[in-house]
Amino acid sequence: MQNPELDDEIAAAVAALRRGEAIGLPTETVYGLAADAAQPDAVRRIFALKGRPADHPLIVHIAGADQIDAWACHVPDAARALAAAFWPGPLTLILARAATVADVVTGGQDSVGLRAPAHPLAQRLLRAFGGGVAAPSANRFGRISPTRAAHVRSEFGDAVPVVLDGGDCAVGIESTIVDLSGDTPRILRPGVISRAQVEAVIGPVAVGAAASSPRASGTLAAHYAPRTPLRLLPRAELVAALPATADALVLALDALPVGSEGLSLPADPAAYAHGLYAALRELDARGAAMLLVERPPAGEAWRAVHDRLGRAAAGAGVGVGVGEDAP
């Protein structure tokens, strides 16, 4: 049975997109700040709202693989195989752009990032809208990505009047980005879809950007950053630092050290990723002098979490504008 209230919300969101407005859109990774990717002025509104540099490309969110050819050209078989395996889902493909894609979407590059999100509300919106939406994460440039509708509202208030509430994001960190625009497939940003999973579909892939790689979301040194300074430490060093660190809050694995204040997250990579940004936002809002974050275990399963925490530490405690991301 259809939900009339939800149908009304989707209709209002579609109408806002057609008017050139930006909306808050839930995905399984993080919430996006979405605008009609076919309207350059609407896309520019995203940049203005976020305070985002114009040369940063955006990811275009589409409903499914049947829309790839509207946005990309010279699509390799590897791209279609990955889309068949992982879409809808937390995987972004960078491909040669179609001639009709606006420069403002691609940051002036010859490539475009495409993703089909798995969140059911995002899917309903995209199918009802019928086009693609450009959607970086719905936060101010360089700050912590939002995983709840309330995070989007607190960031933008009345400037983004339509925010679809899809609950907490199931994944909690941004998509894996695979660049297929050059001769060698490359993972430019790690995510919950691992290198091994990608290679099981298309064979060997490189990791990290080459000199010829396009600019992509999530590849600046500083992203996901709290305003509070942040130190990332192994547990023993964190415990040793506590007596000398006045007014510090801790983000720990499994349990807080005795005598400390803060939050803990499960020592499981998927569960940790799911709760990471909400925990950082809560701790950042408490106004402490320092955040001490326990370094998670090494290993491939934790690669994406280490990536996010390292970039958060690099940008923490500095002014707005250090970096930004897309779902």
Rank of each mutant, 00 (worst) to 15 (best):
L265T: 05
P257C: 04
M290V: 14
G315Y: 01
P269V: 13
L292I: 08
A278M: 02
A279Y: 01
D307T: 10
A289R: 14
L283N: 00
M290R: 15
L283S: 08
G310W: 00
A288D: 13
R308Y: 09
G310F: 12
L309N: 05
V305E: 01
V293K: 03
D254Q: 13
A267H: 04
L280C: 06
A312K: 05
S260D: 00
P296E: 14
E300V: 06
A314W: 06
L263P: 00
A313F: 07
A313C: 11
P297Q: 08
R286K: 07
D254E: 15
G299C: 00
R286G: 04
A288G: 13
A273R: 03
L265W: 01
E300I: 09
V305G: 02
D254I: 11
L283P: 13
P266I: 01
H306F: 05
E282H: 14
D307P: 10
E261A: 15
P296A: 13
L280Q: 03
G262L: 02
V293H: 00
A279Q: 02
L309W: 08
R303M: 09
V258P: 06
V318H: 09
L276T: 11
R303P: 05
A267G: 08
G299E: 03
G287I: 03
A273S: 04
Y272P: 07
D284P: 05
Y272H: 07
A278D: 14
A270I: 15
A316W: 06
D268I: 04
E261N: 14
A279K: 04
S260E: 07
G287W: 02
W302P: 07
L283F: 02
G275Q: 00
P257N: 02
V305S: 06
L283G: 09
G315R: 05
R295F: 00
Y277H: 04
S264T: 07
L256Q: 12
E294M: 01
A312W: 03
G319L: 13
A313R: 05
L263S: 00
G310E: 09
A301V: 09
A314N: 06
Y272W: 13
E282P: 12
V318F: 01
A271K: 10
R308A: 10
A285G: 12
S260I: 07
G259Q: 08
P296T: 09
A267R: 13
E261F: 10
A298K: 04
L283C: 09
D268C: 09
L291D: 07
G319E: 15
L263C: 02
